[in-house]
């Protein structure tokens, strides 16, 4: 049972990991993108649209091209999230709009966009399918490693996930390394900490902000795609993604802006999300207590936020210019 719990926790955690990795990258450049929940919806629905159109264009299920059925949703998802990232960057970096307002507007827009197409896609393309169920695409997206089930608990805990899950972990590690060990990361962090210093050192503040925000959005968008195609087995239902986007932002604080900690953090948050299903067997728990347990990630995050502000340790503070627009003449 513990094994299946860990397995489910990881499945729950992966979308959060994508979201928080993307948001960390974005925040490191000084952009507090509160549009992440919307971007994740857009990432999910864009993949769904691509896959839906592709599946519907097939004469029958055997005509499927294994490459295209992965590539089309993936491409659509990345494109959709990229556009969202561009809207945010354009408004906040080029037009210097307020980041909080822009982010929240982006979330309203993104969730609306997701639910609208989720609810209207069938009407719009005029087909006679009863609901959006992309079982074929999902089959490919949720393929696990072939030898996973032969290895008992080890297989289930470590190997029984689809390629996107491993990609999430890989992304977290790569982003972590890029931020810590490369010149790109150094420049990016300089922009987030002190744009005036970066500017004086000849680093383009705008380019870095665009770059980090757009890549970050694309990473976050994959979280939405993973959720629909793997976790939800290709079934899109409106609002099912819920508040996972905000949970991803909570995770950013929980991990004190470190994607590699996010790998374990996301599994922990994922576990807290579903723990009630399992604790039911140990101690009888009613629905109401489950809701309190679901509160735990947020409470823990608030505590982390308070502790880092009380300890005032510089390494664990949010990037110093987080949320502020940079304008050279303001110096």
């Amino acid at each position: 049972m513990i094994v299946s719990f860990i397995h489910r926790a990881v499945m729950q955690g992966i979308p959060l990991l994508f979201g928080s990795t993307g948001e960390i990258l974005t925040e490191k450049s000084g952009n507090l993108n509160l549009g992440i929940p919307g971007i994740m919806y857009v990432g999910g629905i864009s993949g769904v649209i691509g896959s839906f159109l592709y599946e519907n264009s097939l004469p029958d299920r055997s005509a499927v091209n294994p490459f295209l059925i992965i590539a089309i949703p993936l491409f659509c998802c990345l494109l959709g999230s990229l556009i969202m990232g561009l809207i945010y960057s354009f408004l906040t970096t080029t037009l210097r709009a307020n980041q909080n307002v822009t982010g929240l507007a982006l979330t309203t827009f993104g969730i609306g966009f997701g639910n609208f197409f989720g609810g209207s896609l069938i009407t719009l393309v005029d087909t006679d399918v009863p609901s959006i169920t992309l079982s074929l695409t999902s089959q490919y997206f949720s393929k696990t490693l072939p030898f996973a089930h032969k290895l008992g608990w080890f297989g289930e805990v470590f190997l029984s996930y689809s390629f996107l899950a491993y990609f999430a972990i890989l992304t977290a590690i790569v982003v972590s390394l890029v931020l810590k060990r490369t010149r790109v990361g150094l420049n990016l962090r300089a922009v987030g900490e002190s744009p005036a210093t970066a500017d004086a050192a000849g680093i383009s503040v705008s380019k870095n902000k665009y770059f980090a925000t757009c890549i970050g959005s694309m990473i976050a968008g994959l979280g939405g795609l993973y959720y629909v195609m793997d976790y939800a087995s290709g079934v899109w239902s409106n609002d099912a993604f819920g508040d996972r986007g905000w949970l991803a932002i909570a995770l950013v604080i929980f991990t004190v802006w470190q994607p590699n900690i996010g790998i374990l953090g996301s599994i922990l948050f994922g576990g807290l999300y579903i723990v009630h299903n399992y604790m039911n067997n140990i101690i009888a728990m009613n629905m109401s207590t489950q809701e309190l347990i679901k509160m735990a990630p947020y409470v823990v995050t608030v505590i982390v936020l308070i502790v880092i502000s009380m300890r005032k340790k510089r390494e664990t503070q949010p990037p110093a210019s987080l949320g502020l627009a940079y304008f050279r003449e303001d110096r």
Partner: peptide, 24 residues
């Protein structure tokens, strides 16, 4: 001074230099 507070001295010194491989 134009320095990034949370960076080490070495990181600040190499900040903005574009030539060559990044090897702190």
């Amino acid at each position: 001074f134009k320095l990034v507070d949370v960076f080490s001295a070495a990181e600040n010194i190499v900040l903005g230099i574009e030539e060559g491989k990044y090897d702190l």
